[in-house]
Computed example of a mutant assay.
Amino acid sequence: MIDHRLRTLRVLRELGTVTAAAQALHLTPSTVSQQLRQLVRDLGVELLEAEGRRVRLTPAAHTVLRHADVLDAQWERARADLAEHRSGTSGQVRFCSVSSALAALVAPAAALLRAEHPGLAVHMSEKDSEDAAHLLLSHRADIAVVIPSEQVPGPDDARFTRTTLLDEPQDLLVPAGHPLASGGAARLADAAGEAWIGCPGRPDQHQLLLAACAAAGYVPRIAHEANEWFAVSSLVAHGFGIALVPRLAPLPPEDEAVRVPLRGGAVPKRRLIAFVRRGSEGWPPIARGMDALRRVSGQR
């Protein structure tokens, strides 16, 4: 019901190039270019300016997009209202999520939906946080579970509705038999002299480590780097350093690498949020998906 060319322009705003927008929308670049030329002709204003290999939106384009965001939100509300006239026991909800939340929150939520609403189809995909916005805007996902960062839409973004799921504590991961594991819990300040395993490929996690150690009065000595949790765990287990890991991160059995809860002062935490297209939260499949996520998060 909303002009599909406006959706194309919204995705282009998010991704910056015609090629990337075409890939996200499963269209050819020539089709995207043609849609945008038609939109320029029909509106009578220029929407794009070339900027190297990318394109820059004109002030007129930003005006169009402000209205498009309102229209899209209103259409999502209309879909939700229309869905109330149906039974609401079927349909599909699509989740995209960062890996640790997919394992600890989304999969259990999907299992709840399968048990309580067997007619509701669920699709899950592991995606990076920065991919979530364009997946929602291109309608390739309905609910995104992410870690807030500069690449994730902020709370004032009118295109989305955000929900905080939980603030996940961080633990130390140390080799079995390490002195920091002997007391059952440890202070981050006690690890000042340790070698650390850094996660530069997980910018949010890496920045959390640096900020937490700075608050404890030191700069961590990064001896090695790994991004996947099983790799981090292996390096720790073999004595190459210790690590800061989220409470929900899936790790191998603790026979060689041991989680140690942190105590004293402000324990570093990682926030997990879910967001949806504004106006879609009342659509029964999405509402049920969000309800299942909240229930699972409340048990953590």
Rank of each mutant, 00 (worst) to 15 (best):
V260M: 06
E49L: 14
A109I: 01
C213L: 08
T163C: 11
A83V: 00
L6M: 12
R94L: 00
P118I: 07
V93A: 04
L112F: 03
R288A: 14
A292H: 01
R53I: 00
L25V: 06
V152N: 00
A115I: 03
A191E: 07
V64N: 05
Y218Q: 04
D81T: 12
R288W: 07
L137S: 12
P252Y: 11
C199T: 15
T31Y: 04
L262S: 03
Y218A: 08
E150Y: 09
E46R: 10
V236N: 07
T8Y: 02
A186F: 00
G193S: 12
I2R: 11
A176I: 06
Q207C: 04
L244T: 03
E194M: 08
E225F: 03
M124Y: 05
A191D: 01
A191W: 01
A181K: 08
R270G: 04
W196D: 09
R56K: 15
R159Q: 09
D204A: 15
H123R: 13
R86H: 15
G52P: 04
H206A: 11
T19H: 15
P246N: 13
L135P: 08
V152H: 07
G282C: 04
M1A: 14
H238F: 05
A249G: 01
V32F: 08
Y218R: 07
V18H: 00
V98P: 06
P108T: 11
R7L: 11
V64Q: 05
E256A: 15
L120H: 03
P175C: 07
R271T: 14
R10P: 04
G201K: 10
L39K: 01
E116R: 14
I147Y: 06
V267D: 03
R53E: 14
I2C: 06
A132L: 10
R37V: 14
A195P: 02
A80V: 10
